[in-house]
Computed example of a mutant assay.
Amino acid sequence: MLKIDGITAFVAVAEAGSISEAARRLRLSKSVVSERLSEMEKALGATLLHRTTRKLTLTEDGAAFLERATRIAHEVREAAADLAERRGTLTGPLRIAAPVTFGRKHLGPALYPFLADHPGIELTLDLDDRRVDAASEGYDAIIRHGLIADSRLVAWTLARSRRLLVAAPDYLSRYGRPASLADLENHRGIFYANRGVADWRFQGPDGAVIIRGKLAFGVNNGDVMHDAAIAGLGIALLPTFIAGPAIKEGRLVEIDVGCRPEAEFIFMAHPEGRNPSAKLRAIADHLRKAFGDPPYWDREG
């Protein structure tokens, strides 16, 4: 007889790629997860996973079983949460990924009061600046800054994001202050490495304008970009939720080149085909109110 906890363990292992990571996500010991997998394989009369010392892969039977198992595990989890929500309680596990800098500076502080008001929610927040695959890595949702390019995601806007070209006063005194888009091409740039290209994108009267500066420093974290700009390494295009305080303090100077950067947003996105839970919708609504329109980081001072 198949047990739900065995199906849940199998799905978690398939998504995580290892028993140890699945155990961490499920908050169980490795031995318990392994035992549940073995019991389910015995009940099915089939081997679902190839186990070696280096990696874990799905067998042909495992790959065939995974799609339905994933759906079953998700439906059972959501059914239990729906029953609680019918009683007016938001409850159950949620797993969300978000960028490090935004998560530390703004997302975390916005979430704390919501979680205190809804202690039944078991939220795991993974802060990571890489481009997370929400569907294959088992996330209920991801929060991102920019544009959502993954067609498998359904995106909800949480807040607008205004970006500014900035540099340290010391850098501008040494290299001059650009006054046009053409001037930027001769300047050293600090670029977000996860985008894969060293350029700045602006919204011109006839569409997008792309300017390629000289790469001075590339890094995949907004805090480090901010610090590198303050250190005078070059010009950076940063959102105001990162650069705002340093601009007010005079450690960074806004640069006007006569053209606005392309508009971006703070998004929450969930995998297409999944019915988002009431608790996920409630978190999204709370974050919209907490950030405001325009967002509070553009209104302070």
Rank of each mutant, 00 (worst) to 15 (best):
A9N: 00
Y192T: 01
A64M: 11
L172V: 04
G218C: 00
G204T: 01
H226F: 15
G189L: 03
A97Y: 02
V253I: 15
I210M: 03
S29F: 01
R87A: 14
A282D: 09
L90T: 06
N194Y: 03
L90K: 04
L83V: 05
R24M: 09
I266Q: 12
E41V: 02
T70K: 15
E300A: 15
K3S: 10
P169R: 08
L147K: 11
R95L: 10
V253C: 04
V13K: 00
K3C: 04
A269I: 02
P276M: 03
E249G: 11
L181T: 09
V166E: 04
G258Y: 12
G207N: 01
S161Y: 01
R54S: 13
L233T: 02
G301F: 05
P294W: 09
H187P: 01
M40F: 04
E262M: 08
V257Y: 08
A263R: 10
L48K: 09
L172E: 04
E249H: 12
V166P: 10
P119F: 04
M225Q: 12
R251P: 11
Y171L: 09
Y112N: 02
G218V: 00
P99E: 00
A182I: 10
L287Y: 06
T124E: 15
I255V: 05
A110I: 05
R86W: 11
G244L: 14
A141D: 05
G88I: 07
E78P: 00
R144N: 06
A155E: 04
F202M: 00
L181C: 07
L181D: 03
F114A: 08
A198Q: 14
T8N: 03
I247K: 05
A159W: 08
A243P: 05
A167S: 08
P205L: 01
S31Y: 10
T157R: 15
S151C: 02
F267A: 07
N186C: 01
A246W: 09
R201D: 04
I211A: 05
G138R: 10
V219A: 02
I143N: 08
G176S: 02
V154G: 07
Y139V: 01
L83W: 06
L153K: 04
D298R: 09
S151P: 14
A149R: 13
A278H: 08
L49A: 09
G88Y: 13
E85R: 15
E41R: 03
A284K: 02
T101P: 01
F241S: 10
A98I: 03
G176C: 06
T52F: 04
S161F: 00
A231L: 14
A229C: 12
D223P: 05
V197I: 05
A12R: 11
A263F: 03
L83C: 09
E185Q: 12
E60H: 06
P93M: 05
G222A: 14
F291G: 07
I247R: 14
S31P: 02
F191K: 02
S180L: 14
A228C: 04
P99C: 00
I143R: 10
H50V: 15
C259G: 09
G88H: 12
L125R: 03
A193T: 07
R24W: 09
A284G: 11
E300Q: 14
P295H: 06
P261N: 06
P109Q: 08
A63E: 12
P261D: 05
E137Y: 02
R212Y: 06
A198C: 08
R71Y: 08
